[in-house]
Nucleic acid binder design. Structure first.
Lengths: 353, 353
DNA sequence: AGCCTTTATAAAATCGGTTGACGATAGGGT
DNA sequence: ACCCTATCGTCAACCGATTTTATAAAGGCT
C-alpha cells in the first residue's frame, strides 16, 4: 500500500460518508461525540485506520492552540550531569503524550535567548530548563517568568526568584559526605569548595559546617581551597587536579578530601596518583553528583548521588501539573522541590588505619 | 510594552495600512516583493518591529509545507558517544536556520518507531539517526527509506542498505592503534574484540589484521577475546573488566592490550589494577572512540579518536544538501562518508622497556 | 487612441484541522 | 396542537500564515 500521498481528514470523511467535522469529533472523543451512535463511530474509525489517517499536528495545534510540546532548554548537553535528567524528563513527557523539544544553549546566553524565543514561537505549553552550572543571567529568568508558559528549572535552586525549581538537597548531601569520612575515622580533612558564584557551593558548604559543628570537628582553613569560576563543566577536572597539587605541597597532611563535585574529585585522584599517593590507602576522596564516570574510575569514586533521572521525572510532573492548572484557569503555585541526596560508597574511601 | 497578547500578521497590516498579503510578501522577500517600492517596505518593516511581530511557525509551516525542522533520532542519549555528535549536528543545523527536533529512542525499537512516526507527522524535512550501537532493525531502516524525507545515519555504516551514512574509518583507526603499540616495541599483544553483531567490530578487526600482516606480527588467538552482545553501552565496561581478568588468568603474558572501545579499555584498566599490574609500566592499554572519560581516567587513556563533533557537522551538511536537492527536484545521491580517525596518545601506553 | 507591459497592492484560496452555532428528526409532556 | 428536549450531524468560521490570482494605475509603443 502506497504511503506517499498524505491522507487528510477530508479523505477519511469522503471514505466513510460523514463530514470532516464529525470525523474530527469522533476521532478526538470531543464532548459532542456523546450523541454519536456506536456504529457511526465504528465506521469512522475503521475508515481512518484503513486509510492510515494521521492528523497533522501543525494544523491541529494551529486551531486548538495546544502544541502538546514542552520545551526543554539544556544549558550544556555535553555535561554528563544533564543527560540523565534529560532521560527522566523525556520519559515522563513521553508517557504524558507530550513531545519534548530539546534545545542546547551551549552555555551561551545568546543561544539561550534565541532558542527561548524559538520555543515560545512554537507555542510550547511548558518549559523546563536543565541548568546545573551556568550562572544564568537574571534577565533571562525575568524573560521566562514574564512569558505565560509555566516553567521549571531542574538542577539548580534560585532562592530569590519566583521560578519553580527542582534541586537536590545540597546541604544535607554535603553533610552526609563529611559524616561518611568522619565515621571512617578521618579527622584531617581537606576541602575543595565550589566557586562562590554557584548557589550550590554555598549550600554544600553550609552542610559541611553544620556537620563539623555537630561533631565538634575542627576545619583547618589552610586545607580549604576554592575552585575558580568557569563556564566549562569539564574545567573543574583540571582545577581539581591543580588545587589538590597545591594542598599536597603545603606539608599540612590530610587523610581525606571532600571535593565539590565528581569532576573535581577525579582531578584530585589524578593529582594524588601523580604524587605517588594511593587512594584510598593513603587518602580517601569523596565527590558529589555521581556522574557516569564516577563508577568507571580506578578506584571507583565514593560520592553523593544526585538522583538526576528522578529530578527529571519530577520536573516533568511539575510542568505538566502547571499546564493542567493553567488549563483549568487555576493559578499555578510556585514550587521549590528539594530532593534528598544519596551516599554511594565505592572504592575511593576507606577507614583510617 | 506588554508582550502578553500575540501579534499576528493582520495586526501588522492594520498598523501600517497595508494588507496582510503585502506584509507577508515584503517580510519574506517573496518574488513579488520586486515590485514593492522601498519606502513601503520600510514602513512595513518598522511596523513589524514596533509591534514585535513574530510569525507563527505553525501557521507558516502548515501553508508552505516546510517545517524548517530536521528530526534527530538518538538511539541512546546517555551514551557518551552520542552527545558530541549531537553537539556538532545541532550547531550546523542552527547555523542553517533549522531547528533540530531531538528524540531519544532509548535503545527500544518501540520508541524508535513511535518517535519516527511523530517526526514524520511533524513534517520534518530531513532525518539524522545517531546510531553507534544498536543493531538497528532492518525493518526500521526500510521504513526510513520508504518515506520521502532524506535521511543520514551518523556513527555507523550500513554497507548493504541504501542509506547515506557518516562513520569513522574503523579499519584504518584500528590499524593505527596496533601500529602505535608496535612502534613502542610491543609484540605480545592481547585483544578484546567487539561483538560480532556490530559492523564496526569487523571493520576494526580487519584493520588489526591488515597491520599485523604488513608488520609480520603474529596474532596469538589465545589472547583474543570477544565481547558479548549487549544493548547497554555501559555494559562493555564490565565486560572489558571481566575479559581482561580472564586474559590475566591464563598465564600467557602480554605487554599491551587493544580494546574494542574506550569503555572496554576502562574496564581493562580496572582489572589490571586489581591484579596489581601498573598501566602503562606493566601493560599498555589503548581504546577507541575518545569519549569524554578517556581524558579523565588515571592513567588517562591513549585511544583512537572518532571526531564525533565533525561527524555531526558533516551529517547535518549532508542532510541539508539532500533537502536542497529535493527542493530543486534533483535526485538525492546516496553518500557514504568515512572520516579518518586520529590517534590520541596519552598516559596508558608506553614503550616497552 | 488603443493596447501591452510594468508596477503596486489587495482579495481570495489554501494548508488541515477544530469548534460553536445551527438544522432536522423523533419522542415526550401538557 | 404546541413546545421542549434529546439525538445525530453538518455548515461555516477560524487558527495565522503563504501564495495565486485579480485589479488598477501608470508608462511605453505603434
Amino acid at each position: 500500500m502506497g504511503r506517499t500521498e498524505v491522507v487528510t481528514i477530508r479523505d477519511v470523511a469522503r471514505e466513510c460518508g460523514y463530514s470532516a467535522s464529525t470525523v474530527s469529533i469522533v476521532l478526538n472523543g470531543a464532548p459532542l461525540s456523546r450523541y454519536i451512535p456506536g456504529d457511526t463511530k465504528g465506521r469512522i474509525e475503521t475508515a481512518a485506520k484503513r486509510l492510515g489517517y494521521r492528523p497533522n499536528p501543525l494544523a491541529r495545534s494551529l486551531r486548538s492552540q495546544r502544541s502538546n510540546i514542552v520545551g526543554v532548554m539544556v544549558i550544556d548537553i555535553t555535561d554528563p550531569f544533564c543527560t540523565p535528567i534529560l532521560r527522566g524528563l523525556e520519559n515522563a513527557l513521553y508517557d504524558a503524550n507530550y513531545l519534548s523539544l530539546i534545545t542546547d544553549a551551549h552555555n551561551e546566553p545568546n543561544r539561550f535567548e534565541r532558542y527561548l524565543e524559538m520555543l515560545l514561537d512554537r507555542r510550547v505549553e511548558g518549559l523546563v530548563v536543565v541548568a546545573n552550572w551556568l550562572v544564568t543571567d537574571i534577565k533571562l529568568l525575568a524573560d521566562l517568568t514574564e512569558c505565560r508558559v509555566p516553567t521549571v528549572i531542574a538542577g539548580r535552586s534560585f532562592e530569590n526568584h519566583s521560578v519553580s525549581t527542582v534541586s537536590v538537597d545540597n546541604e544535607n548531601g554535603a553533610s552526609m559526605a563529611l559524616e561518611h569520612l568522619y565515621r571512617l575515622g578521618h579527622r584531617d580533612i581537606a576541602f575543595l569548595r565550589g566557586p562562590k558564584a554557584l548557589s550550590s557551593s554555598g549550600q554544600r558548604w553550609k552542610g559541611i559546617r553544620a556537620f563539623a559543628q555537630s561533631a565538634k570537628l575542627q576545619l583547618d582553613s589552610r586545607k580549604i581551597l576554592e575552585l575558580p569560576e568557569s563556564l566549562d563543566p569539564n574545567s573543574s577536572f583540571e582545577a581539581g587536579a591543580r588545587l589538590t597539587g597545591e594542598l599536597l605541597r603545603q606539608e599540612k597532611g590530610f587523610t581525606a578530601l571532600v571535593a565539590y563535585d565528581d569532576m573535581t574529585a577525579l582531578g584530585a585522584l589524578r593529582a594524588l596518583k601523580k604524587k605517588g599517593l594511593r587512594v584510598p590507602d593513603d587518602c580517601s576522596v569523596i565527590g558529589f553528583d555521581d556522574v557516569a564516570q564516577a563508577r568507571l574510575s580506578v578506584p571507583s569514586l565514593t560520592t553523593v548521588r544526585q538522583p538526576m533521572e528522578a529530578m527529571g521525572t519530577l520536573s516533568a510532573g511539575m510542568v505538566l501539573d502547571a499546564i493542567k492548572a493553567m488549563d483549568e484557569k487555576q493559578d499555578v503555585p510556585l514550587v521549590r522541590r528539594k530532593i534528598p541526596a544519596e551516599l554511594v560508597v565505592r572504592e575511593s574511601t576507606r577507614a583510617l588505619k
